[in-house]
Write a protein that binds this DNA or RNA. Structure first.
Lengths: 202, 202
DNA sequence: CTGCTTCGGTAACAAACGTTACGGTAACAT
DNA sequence: ATGTTACCGTAACGTTTGTTACCGAAGCAG
């Protein structure tokens, strides 16, 4: 496993190593040496690329957000209807395959690390508020005649539900298989009056 | 701050110190010395009460579950109707005051710590599956004529929603005030057809 | 070929960690 | 009063942590 020559690409590779350690070894083992080992280099390279450990974590956190936002925007652009867009965006927030499960674990790790770090918690709040506004916009587009507070309550319910099931499924994949998560999401969308055809529900 | 003389009460006090450190300093600062300082004793007492740090964490984790279960059972017993019981039990799972917010942060910390600890993740799964069965039972009691899979999907949605909003509110209390969480819960219950009178909704 | 800069690995540092060993004190039994 | 036991604070152990300093190799200019 060799690192890329480009400088910013190295920072990205190191951030990916942070995600890998966070997903497989947990926050307590998230040391500079473990990240270096996961990236296939030594601690020297890590400390030459970032001034200290916190800067490495902050970069990895921001890159995680940028990556998910880009993926979400692609999903939203590819959707054929507002309700399909809402469902697709919410769906990727759950833990329905090994990749999204990993992201959920990493997300949990960063959240736990943010408890004692003002900058990390600030990044979380900025990113999460943007995420919330996006879902509110999607809900409003899917139900144009709803009053504002209903849009807010339903969007909050959907956000919390996907975030919560992602955490639960990440911690216990056997008890929360992908199809149960999808049924849960579709049942909620139908109950809220936001069900969309084409999702395979009877 | 003096510790109680009774032996098991000391273990409980130390577990409470674990919660305090986890809530205010985060998982990364959860050291034996920090716990001892929070409990008002030295590391000697901690290591005489528990064989090692992991045993301390495991005890604190189990005590957290036992405490919440007891509180939930009291709420359930005090409810006047199945739907009121469901709502009361779900409500306490959110982060609607400083106390429940603290518990959410502690819960997140244990979940993040469980990533690399087989015993911690086992405890989480046992406890969470019991919690899920309880909510499914409450949903079935609140809607006796539902088929089993609908009970499961709705219960999962409610569990995930409260768990998720607790995490979100714990990380950003200003953006997720208590009344928004309650409105979210009531909107979901009404949408699922589980709304109960007396919750103050118009 | 020689000098200079850039890069990254090696080794070491102080601090903090979990854990262990020891010592002193209080309570109880005899 | 004396021996015994339980209790817990003190101090130290070896290890691991983040961070720093140093050193050799590679690339380029002259």
């Amino acid at each position: 496993m060799s690192l890329p020559a480009d400088r910013s690409a190295q920072g990205e590779a190191l951030s990916r190593a942070v995600w890998a350690v966070l997903a497989h070894q947990g926050l307590e083992k998230l040391t500079v040496r473990a990240v270096a080992a996961a990236a296939g280099c030594t601690t020297g390279l890590v400390m030459h690329r970032f001034p200290n450990r916190r800067a490495l974590l902050l970069h990895a956190r921001q890159l995680l957000h940028d990556t998910t936002r880009q993926r979400v925007e692609e999903l939203e652009a590819a959707a054929t209807s507002p309700r399909a867009a809402l469902r697709a965006v919410l769906r990727q927030g759950m833990a329905i395959d090994p990749e999204t499960t990993n992201w959920s674990i990493v997300w949990l790790g960063f959240l736990a690390a943010a408890v004692a770090d003002a900058e990390l918690i600030g990044m979380h709040r900025r990113n999460n508020r943007a995420w919330r506004q996006r879902v509110e916009r999607l809900v409003a587009a899917a139900a144009p005649d709803w009053p504002v507070d209903q849009v807010g309550a339903v969007a909050l319910g959907l956000i919390a539900m996907t975030e919560g099931v992602a955490a639960l499924a990440a911690a216990d994949p056997a008890a929360y298989p992908a199809d149960q998560q999808e049924r849960m999401l579709d049942a909620a969308l139908v109950a809220y009056g936001l069900g969309c055809s084409g999702s395979g529900r009877s």
